[in-house]
Design a binder for these strands. Structure first.
Length: 609
DNA sequence: GCAAGGTC
């Protein structure tokens, strides 16, 4: 008997379906001589410190550097503390029984580093010795699954990938557990002051932005605006330059040849530039972009959006939610026209679905090379029943985005008019000529600035217009806004963009800080630790958060680059570089940061709340 | 009591 093990039930069942195996059992399916089972993500985790003999939280134990890491069954929190998750234990037992019967195992966990780790941890924990092969596919269409099975790889081909995954896991444990205990113990508070490769740089970003915002000194500057009149249609033009002093601006204002000063036609049109600009539709959603949009539109937290999306996924209404790709492959694209047709009766955007039906679709979101473990989020085409208002809102964002993504470009005309009246003034305006994808939600254009005119009258070069009004404008420079959930998620994805080193940046771009699946939980962790709080839509540090930030802000553990460095090394391990060299470096770093924090925490000032 | 990673 061959046993196929997937990362999650949905994939296990999908593969079983392709094989025509339909017999449902408890925790697996069987048919055609195969058995199909699954994990629920990570079933096993690196054991907690006490399982290596490090009892309690004690400076004597630090740094904790286990000789050999152990695995333990995933735990859940109950009123009696942490206990084995019974569902996980049950599934592990099922997997063990199946592996015992197996002649061969086929590994069908997600095609990536963590997918490999999920299987290997199970395999080694169960002390299984059966031979295994690897299925490596990035979409779960029938064709992709069949092709993957014709192309099974030897299990050992992925040993180096497992090594890199295991290193990632151990390194996070060593640095996180030790740094957390070191700072918590030395701070003298009895609370948990957690630190980690992902959470601490994130906290640092929030704190740095908060302090920058709070300490920002606004600069006053001045502008002059005039209002020319074209046959009764007025528009606004603003001085080409900004002025540092009111006097400079006043001088420019005084030179304006307006009607009240006796100039009947003092606005001379120097030039009119009008150029069309194509604005392509947005890409399909991945989890992060959807969380950002839901936060902007509905004020949902990243965690709420993920929960709602998980509900929709479990009801088979949307595809896999925890994806980091905004693209689909050609195989999935083949089903898109039929999918669009399903929305022709939708009350909000049925009209646009009808318009797209049979039309030539925009293929910007179609690129198999940019599909990673999972493709972008799409509706499945199943008809929703009795969704809650919030679920419906998320569902509509997924479906609406699909219509946008395959819609036509939006064509705008950007107009710039230069007017001479004493000095030069600029009027700019954007007119949407063909709305294209913008028809789906009829949203306002975010890019549009305050000074812009909705529409500008038709004027020609050389024309002279009366200037009917003028004004001196006093303005102030603004600080970068505080992070909210949407802008933080975006910053986490692109933390690499502020890194100069090209190779580091590439490594960061692939991973960012955290992963789509973990970012929502990480934000919740910072809230739970009382490091940050929500103020309206903003995320701001608490006193505790700022105190921790002050202690660690110059340390490596607070820098996003730490992840970039690790990723680079892990990638080398994946291509065969030495594991032990990296492990030694991590141990050395763990010793160093533990010592530093044991000292630094003593100087901490934290109010006990 | 603690990390980051995955998912019901």
């Amino acid at each position: 008997m061959k046993v196929i093990i997937a990362e999650k039930p949905s994939v296990g069942r999908e593969i079983a379906k392709v094989f025509g195996a339909t017999t449902k059992k408890d925790g697996y399916m069987e048919g055609k001589g195969y058995t199909f089972t699954w994990a629920f993500g990570h079933l096993l985790q690196l054991a907690a410190p006490q399982e290596y003999g490090y009892y309690g939280w004690n400076v004597q134990n630090l740094p904790m550097l286990p000789q050999k890491f152990k695995l333990s069954v995933r735990k859940v929190k109950t009123k009696d503390g942490m206990v084995e998750d019974p569902g996980v234990r049950k599934q592990l037992d099922i997997i063990k029984a199946l592996f015992d019967e197996a002649t061969e195992i086929i590994v069908a966990t997600d095609a990536g580093r963590e997918g490999e780790l999920i299987f290997r941890y199970i395999y080694y924990y169960l002390k299984c010795k059966k031979p295994f092969k690897r299925l490596w596919i990035s979409s779960q269409t029938d064709a992709a699954i069949k092709e993957g099975f014709r192309n099974l790889k030897p299990g050992s081909d992925y040993d180096a990938l497992f090594n890199s995954a295991h290193c990632r896991s151990q390194s996070d444990w060593l640095v996180g557990m030790n740094a957390t205990q070191a700072l918590s113990l030395s701070s003298g508070t009895r609370s948990v002051l957690s630190l980690g490769r992902v959470q601490t740089p994130t906290l640092a970003m929030i704190c740095a932005r908060y302090l920058e915002n709070k300490n920002f000194v606004p600069q006053t500057y001045y502008q002059v605006s005039i209002q020319p009149d074209k046959d009764g249609q007025v528009f606004k033009a603003v001085s080409e330059k900004n002025f540092k002093t009111k006097e400079e601006a006043q001088a420019v204002l005084d030179l304006v040849e307006d009607v009240t000063l006796g100039f009947p036609q003092g606005g001379h049109i120097l030039s009119v530039e009008a150029k069309p600009r194509k604005e392509p539709p947005p890409l399909l959603h991945d989890l992060s972009s959807l969380q950002q949009e839901a936060n902007k539109r509905k004020g949902f937290t990243a965690d709420q959006t993920l929960t709602l999306l998980q509900n929709l996924y479990e009801s088979k209404l949307v595809t896999y939610p925890r994806t980091g790709s905004r693209y689909i492959g050609d195989d999935v694209y083949a089903g898109v026209p039929a999918l669009i047709d399903k929305f022709m009766d939708h009350k909000e955007f049925g009209k646009q679905a009808t318009l797209l039906s049979g039309a030539k679709l925009n293929k910007r979101s179609v690129n198999a090379k940019k599909v990673t473990d999972h493709h972008a989020i799409l509706p499945t085409g199943e008809t929703p029943h009795q969704l809650s208002a919030d679920q419906q809102a998320i569902y509509d964002m997924v479906a609406g985005r699909m219509l946008e993504a395959f819609h036509q470009d939006c064509i705008k005309e950007i107009t710039k008019i230069t007017v001479q009246s004493g000095s030069k003034f600029i009027a700019s305006g954007t007119v949407i000529q063909t709305a294209g994808w913008r028809l789906v939600f009829n949203d306002k254009d975010e890019e549009k600035k305050d000074e812009e005119n909705a529409t500008l009258p038709k004027v020609t070069q050389g024309e002279n217009l009366p200037v009917t009004d003028k004004a001196l404008l006093e303005k102030q420079t603004k600080p970068k806004p505080l992070y909210n959930e949407a802008s933080l998620l975006k910053a986490l994805e692109t933390a690499g963009k502020e890194i100069d080193d090209e190779e580091l940046r590439q490594a960061m771009k692939d991973s960012g800080l955290g992963t789509p699946a973990t970012r929502a939980a990480m934000i919740e962790t910072l809230l739970k630790r009382n490091y940050i709080s929500r103020e309206k839509k903003n995320l701001v540090p608490t006193e505790t958060g700022l105190a921790v930030y002050e202690v660690v802000k110059h340390q490596q553990i607070a820098q996003a680059e730490l992840t970039g460095n690790w990723e680079k090394r892990l990638e080398e391990i994946r291509s065969g570089a030495s594991v032990s060299a990296f492990q030694e470096e991590i141990k050395t770093y763990t010793r160093a940061i533990t010592q530093e924090l044991l000292q630094a925490g003593k100087g901490m000032v934290i109010k006990v709340s």
